[in-house]
Design a protein around this nucleic acid. Structure first.
Lengths: 219, 219
DNA sequence: CGGATTTTGTGAATAATGTAACAAAAGTGG
DNA sequence: CCACTTTTGTTACATTATTCACAAAATCCG
């Protein structure tokens, strides 16, 4: 029975944590591949990722069977399968809104393209920034988002504005028909049900570090 | 019975997710405070944070009692309490290793000081970068980390090197007696038990966006 | 070719986390 | 000052996630 998809999605809802771990597996597997490894067992991979071997097997089981019993997983195949599962077997057309310090850093970040995300547009509402060239892209007025997005077929938007302008940026992106948003601004935003939304707030992680240090010191 | 600490830590281990949410509560509460609110119920805060009200009350209960029954929580007091719980009632002395695009962006990020983290040193192993001034700091050779850290009393280190140099940066930080590390490099690193380690990998979040878009499209 | 060995995939057991429900406390108004 | 309302803090319950344990599959080697 030919299936257009590589994986079968056995379960209805996949834990969010599983997705995060799959991303980690891909990262670690690619490192291992560069180091020349060919096959790996769930146990070894688990050690490298600092998780439980069963966890890995179960995470994979959500999508199908990728290993060979008695042998392990062929790294190259597994990477390809996982990428397909995660939806990064092709390049996602991405735009960025908010060309501040962080925005510039991301625009200059070479890894995006390597990892399956191509930033093809940079937007800002500051007239002084519009027209400026950053990393081979001409910064455009946020108002032109809709027009340009449709023209370019953009699917994902990255928000790197100051917090007070994050909601406005999100509105523009939604209007432009974007399917998913990654928000770096430290502000909660609301988007329609059908738009996928994720937050990156490294301060939360810093808080976590601070908390755990404090905890350790109190013991 | 006078207690030197504000909170009592009723439970042994606090869920990691709780800490992340406490950070979120602080962020949202500070927004509400700026908007002029004075008191808030767990229900309203829950709505603003997009979590369950019981969740908030339970998260707070790990640390003590901060509300007034029939009234709610005094925002100013709650912010102060939460900051104390998280260990950000004072400023953490922080250094950054790896002055690339991302490193520069973080060094220029004004919010760090506001949020309780002061970056007081920037390090890199590239001779061309050493001596350069970034955001009022002179970039120093990574080899001088130990000497400088002790001199300045540094507690937290941020790694923004390329992945292949992340472990080396971590080693230097550990040698320098750092207590916690926030690693932005897309590479797993190992540190001694007593050092707190957190990762920030926004690609994982991007993967998550890509996955959820794919999922929505398949439905 | 078949027993020994390895390692997966998975169902059952356990642990952790999140949600609901409610009694206890504080304020309010007659 | 006492019923009534509100909203917390907390216990009990439900759900979800993780780990264990083992049968099924694949390879290897004598």
């Amino acid at each position: 029975m030919p299936n257009p998809r590589l994986f079968s999605l056995k379960s209805e809802s996949i834990p969010r944590a599983t997705i995060q771990r799959l991303a980690l597996y891909v990262q670690v597997l690619e490192d291992l591949q560069r180091e020349g490894s060919d096959v790996i067992s769930s146990e070894s991979l688990a050690k490298a990722c600092d998780v439980n071997p069963s966890q890995i097997r179960k995470d994979l089981a959500y999508f199908g069977e990728f290993g060979v019993r008695g042998v392990g997983y062929y790294i190259q195949d597994l990477i390809a399968s996982l990428k397909r599962c995660l939806g990064i077997d092709h390049t996602w057309k991405t735009v960025l809104v908010g060309v501040g310090n962080l925005g510039r850093a991301l625009l200059n970040h070479k890894e995006f393209k390597l990892r399956g995300f191509e930033i093809i547009g940079a937007f800002d509402c500051d007239p002084f920034k519009i027209g400026e060239e950053v990393s081979g892209l001409e910064v455009m007025c946020t108002k032109r988002l809709m027009e340009k997005s449709h023209e370019l077929g953009v699917e994902i938007g990255i928000i790197t504005t100051p917090p007070e302008r994050a909601q406005r940026a999100a509105n523009h992106l939604v209007e432009a028909g974007i399917k998913g948003i990654l928000n770096f601004a430290p502000a909660r935003i609301t988007v329609p049900e059908h738009v996928v939304l994720e937050y990156v707030d490294f301060f939360h992680h810093l808080y976590s570090v601070a908390f755990n240090i404090t905890l350790a010191q109190q013991k």
